[in-house]
Design a protein around this nucleic acid. Structure first.
Lengths: 343, 343
DNA sequence: CTGTTAGCGCTTTCAA
DNA sequence: TTGAAAGCGCTAACAG
């Protein structure tokens, strides 16, 4: 039952004109007489013509598609970034093709290869945590495919633009906020130590403590090693239960850690924020509905997507043969104050 | 700096064989001598050959891409569905192209038109809440593009398969659970009345009450009209504050309503679950970390994606010209018990 | 303003 | 087992 699609040729034949004229008319080229254009449009509509995007792409050498590779779908940070990208590129007549690398290096390579097959005009990629080498990305760039990296970039890649947030600084400012409020026993709940983001957020904590001459107390530091939520929950619960000292503030490197901390602290009869204040990191919606609502370092995720898109479109537009210099954009974070810090 | 890509012709020339042979060799066709195939593979690798997907698609008539249209990115239900789809189709060598209709009918049409341009081999679509007419979908189907609809289907569309959950039944069973536990004053918090899902969830409530001869008390029913979270929060807070009776159970048509209800009920000095039990609808992750954790009707979102994908792949595989009969799959929901019902 | 023509890179008969 | 050649539907350079 699959009907043959109407093509330019069909319209041309009916109208007794050439395919080229039909093509131009449909493109609203000024090089075709208005009356002809009208005729073509009418006929195209009447015949139910729909251009063949594939043929167009093959012929024009561009697909108007942008490939986006994120480590996972089920993290709202990435979804927000994608929304930001989509928001920007749609204004420039591009669509996005999102792939998940499922935080696997191999899968990231596969996705990249897929895009390398010419389906996309450019690529926006967030390297997975597993990614340690960057030759697969360099290879893409060497083939002349415009590329922008965002968020988790462990190594600079020349030829690609980078969009980042300053994790260190963000973390520093959260801890500084506590210190300025007179907090002394500030717990730091970090993540797996070999992830760069977590290292940076940790160093921000250390630097803030150092700047204000507060000695580091190892007992107040926990680096979570767990991979899933259940485990994390246990790890954090256990930590606070065994903690001999009474902290007056808790800074965690994710919102989830923040909420889990509040959960167990409440059970341990702490009053939040009176006895202990909590700041999380991320601000992806859940912290807002939690009771008490969670103050956190807000990552500009949507904006990050927009900015990445902007840089990519810019590369796409720039027809010059000269290679782009690598541009690095660092986005500002801000703290969103809520109940867990008494706001 | 954009280098010309290596193509079949380049390999053929180097090896002094025809393009056709190279193409076949790379396809692992049995119609090419193993030794030749070896040579071709080696050369292809050496030259860094990457097939051109666009050319392939134009020539073969298939793109191995599946278009997915969801109402919005920022709802984990849809993201889960997409994950389910991706999970299934990737086993069949397909990729998905996700578009959001931003819950706008117009945008849904636009997205569909985009897919109609031949970029995708099939379409999986969740109609937006705004969508009242279905001719745009019928038009796609008439063009012979395999289509599967899921979730919010107000009207049956012949030629497309449907994947649904039984909202009515799911809702019924949640309310029935309360009733069997001896609850009498069961609050129902619904959503905007003209959305089919919400109507169905409402009728499930009514039916359960009727079956067990519990009179309907209008005071215990609220249909939220708000469009954003802040407003919803206010609406629900106000409702409970003004409620003269003390309910012993609350059933809400979304998880969010459930959590907001718990929040205000706790403030009003209800103990959950002792004084009042709460069941939400959705189960998309947040209810689990909330305190108390929220019991809810779990929508099989991932499964819904998988099933939709399965039906689509099935249509794609079926080369017969005969039109598919419309298949309707109804997926089972289940209740996930947590603290808000004392579990 | 319009038509002719040569591709875009690959698949796929058909012939050898 | 291989090759020649005709498309797939559209764009774009060139000619008129």
């Amino acid at each position: 039952m699959k009907k043959r699609r109407v093509k330019l040729e069909d319209i041309a034949r009916k109208l007794n004109i050439s395919i080229a004229t039909v093509s131009r008319a449909l493109d609203e080229s000024p090089r075709v007489k208005p009356s002809t254009r009208e005729k073509v449009f009418r006929m195209a509509k009447a015949m139910g013509y729909m251009p063949n995007q594939i043929a167009k792409s093959l012929s024009s050498g561009k697909t108007n598609l942008i490939g986006v590779i994120i480590p996972r779908y089920d993290e709202s940070f990435f979804i927000e970034v994608c929304r930001g990208i989509d928001h920007y590129v749609s204004k420039h007549n591009y669509k996005i093709l999102i792939s998940s690398s499922r935080t696997s290096f191999e899968s990231e390579q596969e996705n990249l290869s897929f895009f390398e097959k010419g389906l996309v005009d450019g690529i926006i990629l967030c390297p997975s945590h597993e990614t340690e080498t960057f030759s697969h990305i360099r290879s893409i760039i060497n083939k002349g495919i415009p590329t922008v990296l965002f968020d988790n970039i462990k190594e600079e890649v020349s030829g690609a633009d980078h969009v980042l947030i300053d994790d260190n600084k963000a973390s520093f400012s959260a801890v500084e906020y506590f210190i300025k409020k007179g907090k002394k026993k500030i717990v730091f709940i970090g993540g797996i130590k070999d992830k760069k983001v977590f290292q940076d957020r940790y160093s921000g904590y250390l630097e803030a403590m150092k700047k204000y001459n507060i000695p580091i107390d190892e007992d107040l530091i926990l680096h979570c090693n767990s991979l899933d939520r259940e485990e994390e929950d246990l790890e954090i619960s256990k930590y606070f239960k065994n903690l001999k000292k009474r902290p007056d503030a808790v800074f965690t490197v994710t919102d989830n850690y923040g909420m889990m901390s509040m959960k167990i602290l409440t059970k341990l009869n702490y009053n939040i924020p009176k006895d202990v204040e909590v700041i999380g990191f991320g601000d992806l919606g859940v912290g807002k509905v939690f009771v008490p609502s969670l103050t956190c370092v807000a990552q500009p995720s949507f904006e990050m997507g927009q900015k990445s898109a902007e840089l990519l479109i810019d590369q796409l537009k720039d027809e010059s043969d000269e290679k782009h210099k690598k541009r690095v954009i660092t986005l500002e974070t801000k703290i969103v104050f809520r109940e867990s810090t008494g706001d």
